[in-house]
Amino acid sequence: MKRDKNRIFYQCLALLVPFMTLLSPTWLSISGVGPRWAELWLLPWALEEGPVAGIFAGFCLGLVLDGINLDGSTQIPALIFLGYWWGCLGSKSRYSEKSFVLGILILSGSFLSGFSIWLQQIFQVHGSFFNAWALHNVLAGSIVSGLIAPLLCSLSLNSFFRGKG
């Protein structure tokens, strides 16, 4: 019963993803590139709820983020893939409890999604985009998300899903 309440509350917390993306606090960014909030919300959800819920959540988050970003690239495929991957990891193994592993998962996940945006910008937008700017964006985004992931994800896992009650 309490677990169900916590799940609904965590779903409502997903509203914070577009709001934090819009706010993009400058003190939490590497030279202007902030953390990827969608991945930070998606990881605990997918680990606990499995691949199907992870895919659906990734799809929803991708829709919202595409709505508040400029046209030209989409995050939906990367987020769907990450939801599936993390969902499978969570149902198979328990090594997602270590906060260091959470950091590594977020680091590689945000690198993948950043890389997918980079690829789309190469193919869809005119001009050559093998430049330092795109690499800088991908690396800065994944590093800053990976740094705060052990704190945020283990906090949300413990308080919303692992609570003994």
Binding site: S24, G32, V33, L70, S73, I117, Q121, G141
Partner: peptide, 8 residues
């Protein structure tokens, strides 16, 4: 909202 450095 100001995002002048990211991909968008």
């Amino acid at each position: 909202s100001r995002r002048s450095r990211d991909f968008w």
